[in-house]
Design a protein around this nucleic acid. Structure first.
Length: 999
RNA sequence: GCCGGUGUGGCGAAAUGGCAGACGCACGGGACUUAAAAUCCCGGGACCGUAAAAAGUCGUGCGGGUUCGAGUCCCGCCACCGGCACCA
C-alpha cells in the first residue's frame, strides 16, 4: 500500500467510537464555504455580490470609492504563507503547521472586522518534475499538474480559508509572463550610485570615450542590473546546471548534496550587491526575529575598513601597475604589517614573481587550482603558500616586506590581496609561525589577556636595579598593583610576541606605530583607525572602504523547467561580437519549446538548445537557452495575489497600494464604545505597510527572503510598488519532528501523513493539535496520542451542545438507513441544558476570562495557551446544569478560528434551535470581554516569612496594606513562626502577596 | 571559532520579579457496564513521613550575584539545536 494512501484498514482498529461525526460535518461546511465563496477577498472598487457575508457585515459599498462619509472602510490585513513546491510526496505534517497558524489568524481578523487577504499558490517550477521528465519523457507540466491536484485536495481537506480565486502557479504562462516582464524591468535598469537607487537604463550617462554604438552598448550592458558575465561559477555535474553561491553548502549542492566544481562560464547575473547597503539598513524597519535579521546581516557581511596601496619594490612594471591594493579592517595595525599575501589567482602574481621563484609559484598555483573548494575549506587547519621573490614597500615606514601567495587569501573578497599583520590576526599569525616570517606587535592587549596567554612564558625584568627572571604571570600580578611594571610587561610582550601562542586580534592601544609624520601610539584602536585612515587619504595612499561578503546573484540555470529568458542574441556587423537584446513586452509570455528529450545536448548545452526551430529566429538571431532559477517565480508571487487575474499588468496600482497598506492609512478598526474593555481588544496597529504577516520555514532565511527583498526594491525604485519592503512581519514556524524526536524522513520511517490523521480524527482535531503542541516557533516532536487529547476535547465541546440521546438515534440511522449524509445530521438535536436564560456571575466570569485570554493570546501568536484557555472553559461548562445561550454562543466564536467546521455546525444548530437565522460565523463580530466581570470579591494571597511560603490568607479585594499585614500576622501557620521574634520588615503587594521579615 | 536560540515532572508544555508545573498526554484509583471500550469523577514533581493525612526538606542545566522574594534580572560556565565559517 502506498504510504500516501489514506489507511482504511488502520493499524489501530477503530478502537473508539467517533467523538463526533466530523466525517459528515467537515465536508458539509467545506462545500458550503465553497458555494458561498465565504473567504473571497475583495479588491477596492470591486462590486460586492449581494448576500455575501462580507457585504452583509460591512455594507455592499464597503470598498467602493463613493462610500458614504462617516462609515469607515474595513482595514486590510494581508496574511501570507510561503507557498509550497508541489512535490510528488504530497503534504507532510510540517506544511500545515504554518498554514493552520495563518488560517486561525485570518479567521480571527475577519471576525475583528478586517478585510483579509489570505491566498495560496504553487511554486511549481522545480527539479524533480524535470528529472522525472528526463527519465520518462513525460512533460514536466503533466507531473506538475498532477502534484498540484493532490496538494490542492490535501490542503482543502484541512478547511483553510484561502481565497482560491487568487490561486496561482509559477509555471502558468499567465503568471510567468510577468516574471519575464519583471526580468525585463531589471534588465532595462541600472543602479545610480548618486541616487542610491535603480533607474531606467535611459537615464544612464555615457563617458566621453564611448563614441560608437558598439561602445555605448558595451558600456550600457556593463551597467545593467541584469548582466552577462564570464566568471567562475559553481557547476553541478549531477544536476546538470550551475548554482548560486547560496545554493552551495559545504562544497555540495543544497539540493541533493551533489559535488560541485568551480568552472568559468558565461552566465546571467543580477547586481544584488548594489543594494547591499539598503538590504542591510531596511532590516531595521521591519519586524522579523533577531536571529533571522542576523542571518541576513551575516550573509550580506558588511565590513568597514580601508584600502591601502603598497608600492612594489624595484618594480620593472609600468608605473600604473606597480602597486598592490589591499583591503583591511585594521588600518591601525599598518605598522605591524610584516609581509603581504596575494591570492594565487591575483592578476599581478605572474608579473611580480622573480625567475628564481617562478617554478615554485607555478607549482603552487597548479596545486591550488586542483583543490576543490571543499578541500580548501576543510583543510583549513594547515596554512600553505609560496614566496614570489618580490617585495612591497610598507607605506608608513618604507620597509621592504616580502610578497607571498597563499590560498588562505580569497580572490573573490576585497581586493584579493592582504597586508599581513601576524601579531594581530590569527590567520597571519599561523602563517608567519609556519614560514618564519617576522611578527611585530603594534597593539597593547589588556593585562588579563597577557596573563592568560603568556602564563607559560618567562620574563626578564628590572626591579630595584637588579635583573630578575620571573614568570610572566608573576610580572602581570605585580604590574596589576604596581604601575611601574606595566611598561615592562608590554615590552616583554612586544619582544616575545611570537611566544604567545595566539595573535591578539581585539581592540587595545596602539604602540610602536609612529613615523616622522604621524604617531598612533597610545590611541585606542577606534581612534587609531580614524587617524591613520585620514592620513592615508591625505597622502593619496588609501581610503576608507566598505566591503561585503554578498556576491552578485547568479541567475541562469541550464534547465528546461524554468522561465525562458526573454532575450535574443545577435552579432555586431562591424566587430563580429555577439550581443544580447531584450524581446519586446508584446512577445511575452515566451513559452519554452516542446521537447521529447529533456537532457542537455551532447555538447553540454542546456536542453532548450535542442529545439533548433525555437532557438534560431528567421532574421538570424538566436534565443538565450538558459532558464531562470526557481527563485524567480517566488520573488514576487505575493504581489500577483493582489490582482491575480489582471491580464494587462502584473498588479494594478490600486490593488497594490490597498493591500500593501499605503492607501487608507487612516482607516482603523471601527472604534466602538469608549470603555477600556472594548479598546483593549482592538489591535494596537491595525494595518502595516507590506504583507502584515508572513509565515514560513527558516530554510528560506537567506535565499528567498533576500532575493524577494531585492526585486521588491527594484520595483519600488522604478515606481511599480509603493513600499520599500515586502514583508513587514515575519515568523518562522518550528520544525515538526517524528515521534522519535528525529527529523521526519522516509528512510527513518517516522513520517506522519496528514491524510491518515484526518481520516481518524478529522481536520479540526488535526489543526488544533498542530497548534496545541507548543509555541509556533519551536521545534517539537509529533505525538499521535496528543492528537487524541485534543480530539477528546472537541468531543466534549460537541457533547456540551448536542443531546446525547439524539446521538444514539443518529448512530442507528447511520448504520441502518441509506439516508443522504446531510439528512443524517438532522437526527441530532441541541442539548437541553442550553437555554435562553441569564447567566450567573460565575458563568460570566468563566466566559469573559476565556475571551480575554484567547484574544490576547491570538494577538501574540500564542495558540497553545489560547487552546488551553478554551479547555478550561469547557471543563467548567461541563459541570453546569444549565448553559445559557449568551455564554455558549460567544464561546463558539472563540473556537471558530481553531476548529471552524465544528464551530459552524454547532453555531447553525444553536441558532436554529432558537429560531434564529445563523448567518456565517466567519463574519460574526469577535466577542469582547468586560473586565468588571472578572473582579473577584475575595482573593487568596500567599504569605511568606523570610521569603518562604507559609500560608495563604483570604482577603477582600481592595483591602489596604494594613489589613493584609494584620491578616498575615494572624494566619494560622504564620503565628508560631513570629513568636519571640521581632518583625523587621513587612512587604505587602495588595492582592498579590505578603512577606514578613523576622529576626 | 563567531552569531542566534533553547535547557522546567515520565512526555508536550504553562507561569507582568510574587503560591513553579496551568492545559494536555501517559499513568493510577473510582463510577457506569455481564465485561470491555467510550464517557464521567478523583489523584498526581521528588524525598521523608503516615493506616491515610498533616507537617517537613529539596526542586526550573551548573556555579556565583542582585533582591524582602529569582524559572524570570546580572556575571561566569556546561549541554543541545540552528546559521555562518581562512571574508582580512
Amino acid at each position: 500500500m502506498p504510504a500516501s494512501a489514506p489507511s482504511f484498514n488502520n493499524p489501530r482498529p477503530m478502537s473508539s467510537r467517533r467523538q463526533y461525526p466530523f466525517d459528515l460535518i467537515e465536508p458539509k461546511w467545506q462545500r458550503a464555504w465553497d458555494a458561498e465563496q465565504t473567504f473571497r477577498a475583495f479588491n477596492p472598487g470591486e462590486v460586492l455580490p449581494t448576500g455575501h457575508p462580507f457585504a452583509a457585515r460591512h455594507g455592499s459599498d464597503a470598498l467602493s470609492a463613493t462610500r458614504v462619509a462617516g462609515r469607515q472602510a474595513p482595514p486590510k490585513y494581508y496574511i501570507l504563507d510561503m507557498f509550497p513546491y508541489p512535490s510528488g510526496a504530497g503534504l507532510h505534517v510540517g506544511h500545515p503547521e504554518g498554514y493552520t497558524a495563518t488560517d486561525i489568524l485570518a479567521r480571527y481578523r475577519r471576525a475583528k472586522g478586517f478585510n483579509v487577504l489570505h491566498p495560496m499558490g504553487w511554486d511549481s517550477f522545480g527539479l524533480p518534475a524535470e528529472q522525472y521528465a528526463v527519465k520518462t519523457g513525460q512533460h514536466p507540466r503533466k507531473t506538475t499538474e498532477e502534484n498540484i491536484r493532490n496538494f490542492t485536495r490535501q490542503i482543502k481537506s484541512l478547511g483553510f480559508s484561502y481565497d482560491w480565486t487568487r490561486e496561482l502557479a509559477t509555471t502558468d504562462p499567465e503568471y510567468f509572463r510577468w516574471t519575464q516582464w519583471i526580468f525585463l524591468q531589471v534588465y532595462n535598469s541600472w543602479f545610480n550610485p548618486e541616487t542610491n537607487q535603480a533607474e531606467p537604463i535611459a537615464t544612464l550617462k555615457y563617458p566621453a570615450d564611448c563614441t560608437t554604438e558598439a561602445q555605448r552598448r558595451a558600456y550600457r550592458d556593463s551597467k545593467r542590473l541584469a548582466y552577462v558575465s564570464e566568471q567562475p561559477v559553481w557547476w553541478c555535474e549531477e544536476l546538470g546546471t550551475v548554482l548560486a553561491n547560496e545554493e552551495v553548502v559545504d562544497g555540495k549542492s543544497e539540493v541533493g548534496g551533489f559535488p560541485v566544481v568551480r568552472k568559468p562560464m558565461r552566465q546571467w547575473v543580477l547586481r544584488i550587491t548594489a543594494f547591499a547597503e539598503r538590504l542591510l539598513d531596511d532590516l531595521d524597519t521591519i519586524e522579523w526575529t533577531d536571529s533571522l535579521k542576523e542571518m541576513q546581516r551575516n550573509w550580506i557581511g558588511r565590513s568597514e575598513g580601508a584600502e591601502v596601496d603598497f608600492a612594489i619594490a624595484d618594480c620593472r612594471l609600468p608605473i600604473a601597475d606597480s602597486k598592490i591594493r589591499v583591503f583591511t579592517t585594521r588600518p591601525d595595525t599598518l605598522f605591524g604589517a610584516t609581509y603581504m599575501v596575494l591570492s594565487p589567482e591575483h592578476k599581478l602574481v605572474e608579473h611580480i614573481t622573480t625567475s628564481e621563484q617562478s617554478a615554485a609559484v607555478q607549482a603552487y598555483k597548479t596545486e591550488v587550482a586542483k583543490k576543490s573548494d571543499l578541500e580548501r575549506t576543510e583543510l583549513a587547519k594547515e596554512k600553505s603558500g609560496v614566496f614570489t621573490g618580490a617585495y612591497a614597500i610598507n607605506p608608513v615606514n618604507g620597509e621592504k616586506i616580502p610578497i607571498w601567495i597563499a590560498d588562505y587569501v580569497l580572490a573573490s573578497y576585497g581586493t584579493g590581496a592582504i597586508m599581513a599583520v601576524p601579531a594581530h590576526d590569527e590567520r597571519d599569525f599561523e602563517f608567519a609561525i609556519k614560514f618564519h616570517l617576522p611578527i611585530r606587535a603594534v597593539v597593547q592587549p589588556p593585562m588579563e589577556w597577557l596573563s592568560k596567554n603568556g602564563a607559560h612564558l618567562e620574563a626578564e625584568v628590572k626591579a630595584d636595579g637588579q635583573k630578575l627572571t620571573w614568570t610572566y604571570s608573576e610580572l602581570i600580578t605585580v604590574a596589576l598593583s604596581d604601575k611601574t611594571f606595566v611598561s615592562q610587561a608590554y615590552e616583554v610582550f612586544s619582544r616575545q610576541v611570537a611566544e604567545f601562542k595566539t595573535a591578539f586580534g581585539e581592540s587595545g592601544f596602539a604602540t610602536n606605530s609612529a613615523n616622522f609624520e604621524i604617531s598612533l601610539d597610545g590611541l585606542p584602536t577606534a581612534e587609531a583607525k580614524a587617524k591613520i585612515t585620514a592620513w592615508l587619504e591625505a597622502k593619496g595612499l588609501g581610503k576608507k572602504t566598505i566591503n561585503y561578503k554578498l556576491r552578485d546573484w547568479l541567475f541562469s540555470r541550464q534547465r528546461y523547467w524554468g522561465e525562458p529568458f526573454p532575450i535574443i542574441w545577435r552579432r555586431d556587423d562591424a566587430t563580429g561580437q555577439p550581443y544580447h537584446e531584450a524581446l519586446p513586452e508584446s512577445a511575452l509570455p515566451l513559452l519554452p519549446p516542446a521537447l521529447t528529450d529533456y537532457k542537455p545536448t551532447a555538447s553540454g548545452e542546456p536542453p532548450l538548445a535542442r529545439a533548433k526551430d525555437w532557438v534560431n529566429l528567421p532574421d538570424g538571431a538566436v534565443r538565450e537557452v538558459n532558464t531562470m532559477p526557481q527563485w524567480a517565480g517566488s520573488c514576487w508571487y505575493y504581489l500577483r495575489y493582489l490582482d491575480a487575474k489582471n491580464g494587462s499588468t502584473f498588479v494594478s496600482r490600486e490593488a497594490e497600494s490597498y493591500w500593501m497598506g499605503t492607501t487608507g492609512r487612516e482607516s482603523r478598526v471601527e472604534s466602538r464604545v469608549t470603555d477600556s474593555a472594548a479598546a483593549s481588544t482592538l489591535d494596537p496597529r491595525p494595518s502595516t505597510p507590506g504583507v502584515d504577516l508572513y509565515v514560513g520555514g527558516t530554510e528560506h532565511a537567506v535565499l528567498h527572503l533576500l532575493y524577494a527583498r531585492f526585486w521588491h526594491k527594484i520595483l519600488f525604485d522604478l515606481g511599480h510598488v509603493s513600499t520599500a519592503e515586502p514583508f513587514f512581519k515575519l515568523v518562522n514556524q518550528g520544525l515538526i519532528l517524528g515521534s522519535d524526536g528525529q527529523k521526519m524522513s522516509k528512510s527513518r520511517g517516522n513520517v506522519v501523513n496528514p491524510d491518515d490523521v484526518l481520516a481518524e480524527f478529522g481536520a479540526d482535531a488535526f489543526r488544533l493539535y498542530e497548534m496545541f503542541m507548543g509555541p509556533l516557533q519551536d521545534t517539537k516532536p509529533w505525538n499521535t496520542q496528543g492528537v487524541e487529547g485534543v480530539y477528546r476535547f472537541l468531543g466534549r465541546v460537541w457533547r456540551l451542545f448536542i443531546e446525547e440521546k439524539s446521538e444514539t438515534a443518529f448512530e442507528q440511522a447511520q448504520t441502518t438507513a441509506a439516508q443522504p449524509d446531510a439528512d443524517l445530521l438532522d437526527h441530532l438535536i441541541l442539548n437541553g441544558t442550553i437555554s435562553d436564560v441569564s447567566a450567573t456571575p460565575a458563568q460570566l466570569k468563566v466566559l469573559h476570562a476565556c475571551i480575554k485570554k484567547v484574544t490576547e493570546d491570538l494577538d501574540a501568536l500564542r495558540f497553545n495557551t489560547a487552546i488551553s484557555a478554551m479547555m478550561v472553559f469547557v471543563n467548567e461548562a461541563n459541570g453546569w446544569q444549565t448553559r445559557p445561550l449568551s455564554v455558549m454562543r460567544p464561546f463558539l466564536q472563540l473556537l471558530a478560528p481553531f476548529a471552524p467546521h465544528l464551530a459552524e455546525e454547532l453555531w447553525s444548530r444553536l441558532h436554529g434551535a432558537f429560531g434564529q437565522r445563523a448567518g456565517s460565523l466567519t463574519y460574526a463580530n469577535w466577542p469582547t470581554y468586560d473586565p468588571a466581570l472578572l473582579v473577584e470579591s475575595e482573593v487568596e494571597v500567599p504569605v511568606s516569612v523570610n521569603g518562604k511560603l507559609r500560608d495563604v490568607i483570604r482577603i477582600a479585594t481592595g483591602a489596604d496594606d494594613a489589613a493584609h499585614e494584620a491578616a498575615a500576622r494572624n494566619a494560622e501557620k504564620v503565628k508560631p513562626l513570629l513568636e519571640g521574634k521581632t518583625i523587621k520588615k513587612v512587604i505587602v503587594k495588595a492582592g498579590k502577596m505578603v512577606n514578613l521579615v523576622v529576626g
